[in-house]
Amino acid sequence: TEKEKEVKRLAKERGLSPDQVRELAQRAGFSPDQAKQIADEFA
């Protein structure tokens, strides 16, 4: 999704850790499970 792409782009730009990616995703409105899946891509 657009929102997911945006979260991943920000995460890459900022060099976020997987935990930070998960927090960012949840703040963007993703469920905890979705946020974990997104964060796992950065693990």
Rank of each mutant, 00 (worst) to 15 (best):
P32S: 07
F30K: 01
E4R: 15
A28K: 07
E23Q: 10
Q37H: 11
I38H: 01
L16R: 01
A35Y: 00
F42G: 03
G15S: 08
V7L: 15
K12V: 08
Q20D: 09
E4N: 06
F30R: 01
P18W: 14
Q20H: 06
K5M: 12
I38W: 03
R27C: 11
R9G: 05
R14L: 15
K3E: 07
R27M: 14
S17H: 09
K8G: 04
Q37E: 10
G15A: 07
I38A: 02
D40C: 11
G15R: 08
A43F: 15
A43V: 13
Q37I: 13
K3T: 10
K12Q: 11
S17R: 09
S31P: 11
E13R: 05
G29S: 01
E4A: 15
A28S: 12
G29P: 00
P32E: 13
Q34L: 08
L24T: 04
G29V: 00
Q34T: 07
E23P: 00
K5N: 14
A35G: 02
F30T: 01
R22E: 14
D33S: 14
K3M: 13
Q20F: 04
E41F: 05
A11H: 01
E6V: 08
A43L: 13
V21P: 00
K36V: 09
Q34V: 13
E2A: 10
R9K: 08
L16D: 02
Q34F: 07
A25K: 00
Q37M: 12
P32C: 09
S17T: 15
Q34N: 05
L24M: 09
L16P: 00
K8H: 09
Q34A: 13
R27G: 09
F30H: 01
E13N: 06
G15H: 10
P18Y: 15
K36P: 00
G15L: 06
A11M: 01
Q26W: 02
V21W: 02
A28N: 09
A11W: 03
K12Y: 08
D33H: 09
A11Y: 01
R27F: 08
E4P: 03
E41S: 12
F42S: 05
A35K: 00
G29Y: 00
R27A: 15
L16M: 11
F30E: 01
D19C: 11
E6R: 08
L10K: 13
K5G: 08
D19F: 04
L10A: 13
R9L: 05
K5V: 09
F42T: 05
F30G: 01
R14K: 14
Q20A: 10
Q34M: 12
K8V: 12
V7C: 09
A39K: 02
K36I: 11
E41Y: 05
K8A: 04
K8D: 05
E13Q: 11
L24W: 02
F42A: 05
A43G: 08
E6F: 12
V7N: 04
F30A: 02
K36H: 09
G15T: 04
T1P: 14
D19L: 07
G29R: 00
D40V: 07
A25T: 00
